[in-house]
Amino acid sequence: MNARLYFWQRGSAALMVPMIVVHLAVIFYATSQRLTAAEILSRTQGSLAWGLFYGAFVLLASIHASIGTRNILCEWGRLKSGSAGAVASVFGAALIALGLRAVAAVVLP
């Protein structure tokens, strides 16, 4: 971990804090209102706002998690920083791909 990685990991965490509150509120609302999948999709499909919100969330979570994974691989996996960085980058790219695919599934019309 160096200053640059620390900046991105802590910065992404700080940005995600209010987004997590919104995310939890959405879950609470959807479950308390007993919304069906069809009802949820009817509200999210074609919505630029939800697409941007969850798209940004996926990018931030991927940055945050991949830097943390690199740290774990270095400290507990005894990998060198270069190897850990390579594995963590692949992991982060996978998170972005899977996350954006999930966002696309609920916001694309």
């Binding site: 971990m1 160096n2 200053a3 990685l5 620390y6 740290n71 920083s81």
Partner: peptide
């Protein structure tokens, strides 16, 4: 102290 192995660990 900001490099790899520095205070941020």
């Amino acid at each position: 102290i900001s490099a790899e192995g520095g205070c941020h660990n």
